[in-house]
Design a binder for these strands. Structure first.
Length: 222
DNA sequence: GTTATCTGACCATCCTTGCG
DNA sequence: CGCAAGGATGGTCAGATAAC
């Protein structure tokens, strides 16, 4: 499920750590390579916590600026991507705390997201686009903690250790949250598709007639 | 065989609800 | 309003399983 499309950009001059070393040595322009390389992950990490595209982009900018300013503090104890993601996660968590103080009722506006599609044709309903929409809706129903773990682990493909480090929790907590997030996703998806389940593998009247006729022919002609 | 991951059981805490 | 009961949620631990 992990999707990490290669980022386009300014050539690929070596490992992250190598680029960090060169940026610190004065090649500031190379920082763009790091940004392009990790845009996807940083965006998903920020959005996993904030659930808002615009705010996620703001956090990305803040995180990149902060990372650039503190690049010399990167000691290489973890991968650069983990270090960068952790900065974005901390920025996002701080922003979420601020917004929760200011708008404690904002979350109530999210109610009603799980309204089910009324499409009656299961084949249409199960098209790729709709499956993706169902998945996204289901993921959005997860609690904040489960949502963040699920996005980082299952979608972004980070390891348990990386996710734990980014979110500031133990690996055990990541494992449990991921397991429960998956279970809840299954339940949410089942809830959203159940109304159309009776139509799945429907034994159409014409096929019924055909089978009955064939059986009758075989019975009647020994 | 080792490591990583998943999953279930158990427990603690928090929240809601009903009752006096 | 205060309190107890029950449910929901989340963390820890341990065993099972898969991948290497």
């Amino acid at each position: 499920m992990a999707v990490n499309p290669p980022q386009s950009g300014v050539g690929e001059p070596g490992s992250d750590e190598e680029i960090v070393r060169r940026v610190c040595a004065g090649e500031e322009a190379l920082f763009e390579v790091l940004m392009r390389r990790h845009n996807q992950r940083v965006y998903r990490a920020a959005r996993a916590i904030l659930r808002n595209d615009v705010e996620a982009e703001d956090v990305m900018q803040d995180a990149y600026v902060r990372a650039y300013e503190h690049l010399r503090n990167f000691e290489g104890r973890s991968r650069f991507s983990t270090w960068l993601t952790r900065i974005a996660v901390y920025e996002a968590l701080a922003r979420r705390r601020r917004s929760q103080r200011l708008e404690p009722l904002a979350a109530l506006q999210e109610e009603g997201l799980m309204a089910t599609s009324s499409s009656s044709n299961p084949e249409q309903q199960l098209s790729d686009v709709e499956i993706r929409a169902l998945l996204e809706k289901a993921v959005e129903t997860l609690s904040d903690d489960f949502h963040a773990v699920f996005v980082l682990r299952a979608i972004e493909g980070m390891s348990g250790a990386e996710t734990a480090e980014c979110l500031g929790v133990s690996e055990d907590v990541v494992k449990t949250r991921l397991s429960r997030a998956r279970r809840r996703l299954r339940e949410a998806l089942l809830e959203s598709i159940e109304p159309s389940l009776p139509a799945v593998y429907e034994f159409h009247l014409s096929r019924c007639d055909r089978v009955v006729a064939a059986v009758l022919r075989r019975i009647e002609t020994p």
